[in-house]
Design a binder for these strands. Structure first.
Length: 423
RNA sequence: GGAGAGAUGGCAGAGCGGUCUAAUGCGGCGGUCUUGAAAACCGUUGACUCUAAAGGUCCAGGGGUUCGAAUCCCUUUCUCUCCGCCA
């Protein structure tokens, strides 16, 4: 969430930034500053009266110790009226605090200066394109047909066991998926990321900490019995490792990577968007997360983009990198690059990664801070990206690499997959 | 799941109704000494709010009793021990 002081000191600028992402309730910024003013005023009143009570209580203690019971009783008699005066102030203060908090979580992050204006995905800017689109033979098959032909994935079986959007990977399909996961993790750890296996369900504090709550409440599966959320991405448990932590400057940057299944309800999705592996309720993903010093976060973002780009190049997939426009960006992001691969048989670009800098939006909520060289505590910056989401990579790999007699496996996967081709 | 015991500063650990502004030890930081280091000795040591300062808040979370709560009561969560179940 945003810092009130930033909004207070740069009110007009903050509104301009929010307008870039087509945020409508700009008056919320003024309301927040007003609420904070109110809160401060009440806090001061509260503190003044509380100080008097504390002082009297100490005096009573001393008097009792000296056996001056009557003087102590006289002092005691003064306190009830102070407490009576305190009560409404306390309530008003707590109410103002809650209102402030409730308002703050409604504000999305401020887009960085690089974010292009725009409302829809059409307004995203292609910053780079790479790889070659293959020339497929006649009647290229979409991946769901290839999956059936080579017995790699059974979608109907998933429907039987759970429901739509929960595919069952079988044999070489499962093996290919595992090969990709292992390749991604090895590639990430070679680049200095530490591998984690985090919990796949999280509590409310964690879901709130990275901003999934209250924004994406309906997107997550919820275990009512224990009040746990199934993670929509391992970003949630990974970033929350640093909740309520004050780091040393030397600890930064923190580089983490994790494989996890991801669970998303995706309510309301339908049609060709959800066909095959295009959109699932459970999918696999390898994630990278970094926590950095504020002054380094944008060069870190560039490094993460280059890192993900390398992965796609190594897999030989045709890709493009988009800088998301204000209207298409995530709630908590300041700048996001999306990666799409071209799935040749479907003839569509599919999103396979999203790399974002959250600046201190997440860390402010998480209270993830570090002590700088001057001993001052300040908020760190957090970033994350998919490296990579598996289903669409798998789908496009099947489609782009299909031949007359099988599917060729990219060379980087040979040692994991144990073969150069699926026949 | 049942019974019992606990949760205190970076860590260990005292405090169980009133100078707690939380003892003590370890660790960290600074200094003295030293060619340098170690040892020894001396000093220092959290967060939030507010900030000119004072003040206020924080002893797992929430609520209560009291003039006054780390300390008493209720409640939630977590940890440990024993039993049960189990990969």
């Amino acid at each position: 969430m945003l810092q009130v002081n930033v909004l207070r000191q740069n009110t007009a600028w903050a509104k301009e930034r929010l307008a870039i992402r087509n945020f409508k309730q700009l008056e919320l910024v003024d309301e927040i500053v007003a609420l904070d003013d109110k809160r401060k005023k009440l806090q001061l009143e509260f503190d003044t009266i509380q100080a008097k009570i504390n002082c009297s209580s100490k005096d009573i203690g001393k008097l009792m110790g000296q056996g001056k019971k009557e003087e102590a009783d006289a002092l005691k008699a003064e306190i009830p009226q102070l407490k009576t005066a305190l009560e409404p102030i306390k309530e008003a203060m707590q109410f103002a605090e809650k209102q402030l908090q409730d308002a703050l979580v409604l504000l999305p992050n401020l887009p960085s200066g690089l974010v292009p204006p725009g409302k829809t995905p059409e307004d995203n800017v292609v910053v780079r394109q790479g790889g070659n689109t293959p020339t497929l033979g006649t009647n290229p098959l979409p991946h769901w047909d290839l999956a059936k032909k080579y017995n790699l994935i059974d979608f109907e079986l998933g429907v039987k066991i759970t429901g739509s959007g929960f595919p069952v990977y079988i044999g070489k399909g499962a093996r290919l998926q595992r090969s990709l996961i292992q390749y991604f993790l090895d590639f990430n750890t070679a680049a200095g990321y530490t591998e984690y296996i985090p919990p796949f369900v999280v509590n409310e504090d964690s879901a709130y900490g990275t901003g999934q709550l209250p924004d994406k409440e309906g997107q997550m599966y919820f275990v009512t019995e224990d009040k746990f959320y199934l993670i929509p991405t391992s970003e949630v448990p990974l970033t929350n490792i640093w909740r309520d932590v004050i780091l040393k400057e030397d600890d930064l940057p923190i580089k983490m990577t994790a494989y996890s299944p991801c669970f998303r309800r995706e309510a309301g999705s339908y049609g060709k968007d959800v066909r095959g592996l295009n959109r699932l309720h459970q999918f696999e993903k390898v994630e990278i997360v970094q926590v950095t010093k504020p002054e380094n976060s944008y060069e870190t973002l560039d490094a993460m983009v280059a890192h993900v780009e390398n992965l796609l190049q190594n897999l030989g997939l045709p890709y493009r990198i988009l800088r998301l426009c204000g209207g298409d960006m995530g709630f908590t992001s300041a700048l996001t690059y999306d990666f799409e691969v071209f799935s040749a048989a479907q003839g569509r670009w599919l999103e396979v990664s999203s790399v974002s800098n959250f600046e201190n939006y997440q860390t402010n909520r998480l209270k993830c801070r570090f002590k700088d060289a001057n001993g001052k505590t300040q908020l760190a910056h957090s970033l994350n990206g998919s490296s990579l989401a598996l289903p669409r990579i798998l789908g496009s790999l099947l489609e782009n690499n299909q031949t007359e007699h099988g599917i060729t496996i990219p060379e980087v996967l040979w040692k994991y997959f144990g073969a150069e081709e699926i026949r």
